[in-house]
Design a protein around this nucleic acid. Structure first.
Length: 939
RNA sequence: GGGCCUAUAGCUCAGCGUAGGUCAGAGCGCACGCCUGAUAAGCGUGAGGUCGGUGGUUCGAAUCCACCUAGGCCCA
């Protein structure tokens, strides 16, 4: 007969292959149908608020955004299983230049050609389009959240919040107006953002200009002979010379005074030979060397105006070109501007919107700046200030629209002061009170906040929230108090901010508003819009404070490490500036996705991987597993090999669970569960190991160390379950009578393992955990695995001695396995381990551990095990093994006596001698007899 | 160029920081073999690392310090 029919083989319909790409959507639908998110969110329990940083509503999701969202999902799911109520409100950042540029491109219009609100309408539609796209893509990843009610920075309520928070800053005196240079296209007559500038080759004048020293500077260099002394600067923009206010030297360089014909010139020593080479001159005599710090605060004379130019120090001065002495015009350059602020210089920019010098400017008033270059050079020549003039071809910023060269020009802008109300100091103190994970995040953001300049809020664009400021037309006074803005804020709340651009100040201001200084009733409204970092920076006010299910401050912000400069900082400044406290209790950062070699993903390197491709090929589950398996605090590598390894790990976990489902097919926990007190030792030991797993995994989740979770779960499936629990107990599970107490005991611990595994994996392998859960052969506690809690350890902790004794036993078992392997590979004595008999000779002190030889047959999966005083001489092919790691243990492997039982495949002496079942061993005969009596067999 | 960070077997990670001296580990992959009653599964054994490099501190360093190389993020 076919004895297979009498065995308890595993049985389950749970498929071996996940077919993830096609089946995942079914689970998404299932969760949707049962209202999973809503149900989780309605539960009681302490709240855990993870505030979502809004991705930009432009383009499809990429690996970085996928990584970020999956991490958030894992965190939230794990917190829910710890008993928290953990809502998730996703958001999108909707305003800003990239969208506006794309819309202009799609519309084929140039900046300013359409009314602001026409552009804004299109931008709004554009953002909505990509929000819908990204929403579906994020959902597909299995990320659970309030996707139907996300927060958008462009809704009327949100826009009103942005304006309201700005007004708070304004009213508290932290907002001021100042000139600052920006890229400016004189052809398009508009300011340009960094992103609107392209670098092209351009031919410019290259001139060396002499600035004579004023008396105070001359006095700082007393040793020089009597002769005119000038400092030499180099510039490629002669038209900025009228705006010159300073000359910068690098405090780290050594400077020299050299004899140059009848006069004396000053420059960095490191540039002297290069300059002489360019001017084709011999090296001049060096009269003296000096530390540039001697000149700081003293003056040179402007080369053609009757005013002075301040000597300053700046470390951005290089020796790569020029003279090591840099002409500074704070109104016409970024670094010049920074230095100007430091030294209290005026942001002087005598150039109008169309690129003409102001009319009243001496010498060049009204002239177009680029064409004035020649005249300026001529004046320098006439005044004897020109050392040398030539031309140079170099990279120069051009307008991306009209392709004409752009300039740096100072215009009025709005700032939040870091100092006025102690914002910097307060922010630095707040940083100390936040938990930064990893810890270096604190140093990083602290360094940035310490050094950052005042926050420039102005953007000369259309797609954003207006800077709501009214200015008195008569005296220029700003209306700062909140009362002036209540009306317009209320309008924003209902209708959004478009109306700011359509209505007159009179319609927006409270009736009868007069300037508090001059009493005038005419006001001008600001036209600039706010930096988008302000939009997202106030999300705590628009979302955390306004949504009933959330709370301020958040427990956690989680974004890429680039956000130390971005959202972490803008949120911190906004919250500290208006609330005095940080918006988050802790901040977790992740690194960036790089390729298998650790290089960043870029189109030019051709190493970009798209989440869509992974989902299509392997499923979102594998992407989630990838996110969880890497230590995301550093750069996160992604390659084909990594994905292949993950797929293998996934299969192992899936298959192990499949086996558990199968082997538990006749197990009813209520009826069959064996209490801990009655479990055999090995089962107790396995439970101990399961307890270890639960502890480690729970701790790893608490510490956001998901790669530990994955490693532990995978290792448990491989080692504890596959190689130990299942392999050793296979005979018992298959061959013993179904109701056998020992079999039920083994099933009990496998049941505990399954229940634990499915819960522990659920936050990461969300689809698979659900899949397994739905195939449970016994009643389920809840409708979805995601409604469950993490497993608790419901059995006693064994004492150390017990654990040690089992670890010793497993070590001994390892030695036996090695001996069996030798008998298999080298002498070909056996094939299956059941063909073997093992004789063990051990020193007296190790005897107790071998007290029960039958138990060792079971543990080593052999047909016969004997403990002997001394081993016999090994016969042909027999293997003598001296243990490597268990001192004194010697093992002999030989063929097991008897014949092979056709049912359990063990070799037993009695096989062939039993009357009714000559093919079976005595154990199997008993089982079969009983099954027959009970009518469990078909025949 | 500056700030912060990373670099352990083919892959993913432990160990490194709040204790420098059995710390060179795990799982996977690979090689070889077994099983065919988890079967496009399962089990076993084995081979892989001068702990990025060079100096230094120390009786002794993957573990502390300096520099260098490669890479990442943010600035310039």
């Amino acid at each position: 007969m076919d004895w297979k029919e009498t065995l308890n083989l595993p049985k389950t319909d749970f498929p071996m292959k996940g077919k993830l790409p096609e089946r995942e959507p079914e689970f998404l639908k299932f969760w949707e149908e049962i209202g999973l998110y809503e149900r989780l969110n309605q539960r009681q329990g302490p709240v855990f608020v993870l505030h979502d940083g809004p991705p930009y509503a432009n383009g499809h999701i990429h690996m970085g955004t996928a990584l970020n969202k999956v991490l958030k999902d894992i965190i939230l799911k794990s917190r829910r299983m710890m008993g928290y109520r953990a809502p998730y409100v996703p958001g999108w950042d909707c305003h800003g230049l990239p969208i506006e540029l794309n819309v202009e491109r799609e519309l084929g219009v140039r900046r300013g050609e359409l009314p602001k609100n026409e552009i804004r309408k299109n931008c709004r539609a554009y953002a909505h389009r990509f929000i819908d796209i990204q929403r579906e893509e994020f959902r597909r990843l299995g990320v659970l959240g309030d996707w139907d009610n996300p927060y958008l920075t462009m809704t009327p309520e949100y826009e009103a919040t942005i304006a309201r928070e700005f007004v708070k800053f304004l009213a508290s005196g932290q907002v001021y107006r100042r000139k600052k240079p920006v890229f400016w296209c004189t052809h398009c007559v508009t300011a340009l953002a960094e992103a609107e500038v392209e670098y092209e080759n351009h031919r410019s004048p290259s001139i060396y200009v002499k600035f004579p020293l004023a008396e105070d500077a001359r006095a700082a260099l007393p040793d020089l002979p009597k002769a005119p002394v000038s400092v030499v600067i180099w510039t490629t923009t002669p038209w900025t010379l009228p705006a010159n206010l300073a000359v910068a030297l690098n405090p780290e360089f050594e400077y020299v005074a050299v004899k140059w014909d009848e006069e004396i010139l000053l420059l960095a020593e490191g540039r002297l030979s290069a300059l002489c080479a360019e001017l084709d001159r011999d090296l001049p005599e060096i009269l003296c060397r000096f530390d540039p710090r001697r000149l700081e605060g003293r003056h040179a004379r402007h080369p053609f105006y009757d005013r002075e130019s301040l000597f300053i120090l700046a470390d951005y001065v290089t020796l790569e070109a020029g003279t090591g002495c840099v002409h500074i015009a704070p109104g016409h350059g970024e670094e010049d501007y920074e230095s100007g602020l430091k030294y209290g210089l005026e942001v002087y920019s005598p150039v109008d919107d169309t690129g003409h010098f102001e009319e009243d400017m001496p010498l060049f008033g009204g002239k177009e700046i680029f064409s004035a270059n020649e005249e300026i050079i001529e004046v320098l020549r006439e005044k004897g200030r020109l050392l040398y003039a030539s031309e140079i071809e170099h990279s120069y910023p051009h307008c991306w629209r009209c392709k004409k060269p752009v300039i740096f020009r100072a215009t009025e802008q709005w700032f939040i002061s870091m100092e006025e109300a102690g914002l910097r100091e307060k922010a630095l103190q707040a940083i100390e009170r936040v938990t930064w994970i990893p810890r270096w995040g604190r140093e990083r953001i602290r360094g940035m906040v310490e050094k950052r300049p005042d926050w420039c809020l102005s953007r000369q664009r259309a797609w954003g929230v207006p800077i709501t400021v009214f200015v008195c037309k008569k005296c220029g006074e700003l209306l700062r108090e909140e009362k002036y803005y209540q009306k317009v804020l209320a309008l924003f709340e209902k209708e959004g901010t478009d109306l700011w651009f359509e209505r007159e100040p009179k319609e927006l201001l409270p009736e009868g508003t007069r300037c508090p200084v001059c009493g005038n009733e005419e006001f001008r409204k600001e036209e600039d819009i706010l930096d988008v970092w302000f939009d997202s920076g106030v999300s705590f006010a628009a979302v955390l404070e306004r949504r009933p299910e959330l709370a301020f401050p958040a427990d956690l912000y989680l974004e890429g490490s680039d956000q130390h400069r971005g959202w972490f900082q803008s949120s911190l400044l906004c919250a500290v500036g208006t609330r005095g406290v940080p918006p988050y209790k802790s901040v977790l950062t992740h690194g960036f996705v790089v390729d298998g070699q650790g290089r960043k993903m870029s189109k030019s390197l051709g190493n970009v991987v798209h989440p869509q491709d992974i989902i299509k090929k392997y499923g979102a589950e594998i992407l989630r597993l990838w996110v969880a398996s890497e230590d995301y605090r550093e750069d996160i590598r992604l390659s084909d090999e990594i994905l292949k390894r993950l797929v293998e790990a996934y299969r192992k976990i899936r298959n192990t669970c499949r086996y558990l489902l199968g082997v538990l097919c006749d197990f009813e926990p209520q009826k069959h569960r064996v209490p801990w007190e009655e479990l055999p030792e090995f089962e107790r030991y396995l439970l101990y190991r399961l307890g270890q797993l639960i502890k480690r995994v729970r701790r790893a989740y608490e510490e956001y160390q998901f790669h530990i979770v994955v490693q532990e779960i995978h290792r448990f499936c491989v080692v504890e379950l596959s190689a130990l629990a299942i392999d050793i107990n296979r005979d018992r599970l298959y061959c013993d009578h179904p109701e056998d107490r020992l079999r039920r005991a083994t099933q009990t611990i496998l049941y505990e393992a399954l229940e634990a595994l499915v819960r522990l994996m659920a936050p990461i392998l969300s689809f698979t955990a659900e899949d397994i859960y739905q195939y449970y052969p016994f009643p389920r506690e809840a409708e979805s695995v995601h409604l469950l809690s993490f497993p608790e350890i419901s059995w006693p902790e064994p004492d150390e001695e017990f654990v040690e004794s089992w670890e010793r036993r497993l070590l001994i078992r390892g030695e036996i396995t090695k001996a069996l392997e030798k008998a298999r590979q080298e002498t070909k004595l056996i094939r299956s381990s059941l063909e073997a008999e093992v004789l063990a000779a051990v020193p007296a002190e190790k005897r107790p551990i071998f007290a029960d030889p039958a138990y060792w047959e079971y543990l080593a999966i052999v047909s016969s095990f004997k403990v002997v005083e001394s081993l016999p001489e090994p016969g042909e092919k027999e293997v003598l093994w001296e243990a490597e790691e268990v001192p004194g243990l010697k093992v002999l492997v030989r063929r097991a006596p008897g014949k092979k039982c056709e049912r359990c495949w063990q070799w037993k002496p009695e096989v062939g001698s039993l009357e009714d079942y000559p093919a079976l061993c005595s154990r199997c005969r008993e089982v079969v007899r009983r099954l027959k009596e009970e009518g469990r067999l078909k025949e």
